[in-house]
Nucleic acid binder design. Structure first.
Lengths: 198, 198
DNA sequence: ACCTGAACACCGTTCAAGT
DNA sequence: ACCTGAACACCGTTCAAGT
């Protein structure tokens, strides 16, 4: 029967979960779907685009939450991290798709974070920089965390749980640094930086 | 004559500068050096390790600077960014090597930033998280900036200089957010976060 | 000690030709 | 419209054998 975009993305996600990003190749995916490699190129222009679709599938459940700007940022980032951690190499895949500009959901998330920054009082011409800074942190730290996690799982290291227990706290700390930075940059009564004129 | 590690790294850097990371393959590098592909594996265990050596070459000029903690962070990050931008796909290569734990210089930089955070008054058990958060920002934003830069250079887009003029400011803004966050987290007279007890 | 030659087991992508 | 078959131009890595 006919091959549909959704089947391809689903199979790709399965391959990712079971074998990791290194084994997620167009040829292997085609084999899994029992089609020829060329068939995939009828549905997707190239591998990057297909990976972008997988990224968006992974990020499906991450939407805007209510509350004040701090809550919105913290919740969005927390959900983003959870989504990445729930798939093998999820952080690496989404990170690459984001860098390649192939994830529509990441673009949406950027807008959500920028809006929160706006509500915090960040000047309009800096809300996107703010949002990107937050995203760089979440992606960077989660890639790190996940590579350690998976390395430990493979090696069956005894000291693994120690790392794992700290990773929540590490993430929360970095995120708070950013939220506090946004808050500081926004309060008129605090001079944010010695070099700032006015 | 004999092939030395340094010659290999130098040739790899040349290939990177001239053709980008996608064309920096072990086989192509071997061809450039007029040796067989297998020869490279006498000097380097694998491609990751070789890329790590290239990363460290790129980062050679980034050391610690004097001054107070804010100056040290800002200068270190500025030099890091400059080093990355001065090689084709430099940010992407160093980012990958950092994630793979193959860059000794990035480890040193992390220590420099952690020390600066300590001087700022960040508790000892959080200086590394702080340093990593800063590094995630520099790598993430510079990967972004460089991909836009190189895309514009390839397309000869007229609106390219507009982006370029803003990228210094965008980088400075994100970095200030982090520095302000560190400062806020450190001053006893400012309650960093509503949820913080004590 | 250092390198060659040749192999192994793969890649992404294209495209004429088929149904 | 959708897919096959086969090709093109590559990869990273290993390893017996040579010098």
């Amino acid at each position: 029967m006919q091959l549909h975009k959704r089947d391809v993305v689903e199979a790709a996600t399965g391959l990712l979960d079971d074998y990791g990003i290194a084994d997620l190749s167009m040829r292997r995916l085609a084999r899994e779907l029992e089609v020829s490699p060329g068939a995939l190129y009828w549905h997707f222009a190239n591998k990057q685009q297909l990976l972008g679709a997988v990224a968006d599938r992974i990020l499906g459940a991450v939407q805007d939450s209510g509350g004040d700007w701090q809550t919105r940022i913290v919740q969005t980032c927390g959900r983003l991290r959870e989504a990445l951690l729930s798939h093998t190499d999820g952080a690496e895949l989404v990170s690459a798709s984001f860098a390649a500009g192939q994830s529509a959901v990441m673009t949406d998330l950027l807008a959500v974070l920028a809006a929160a920054a706006g509500d915090a009082g960040v000047p309009a011409d800096s809300t996107e920089s703010t949002a990107r800074t937050v995203v760089y942190f979440v992606l960077g730290s989660t890639v790190d965390e996940q590579s350690r996690l998976q390395w430990d799982a493979a090696g069956a290291d005894v000291s693994a749980p120690v790392w794992a227990e700290n990773s929540d706290a590490r993430f929360a700390f970095g995120l708070r640094l950013l939220v506090d930075g946004i808050a500081a940059h926004t309060r008129a009564d605090v001079q944010p930086s010695p070099a700032t004129p006015g």
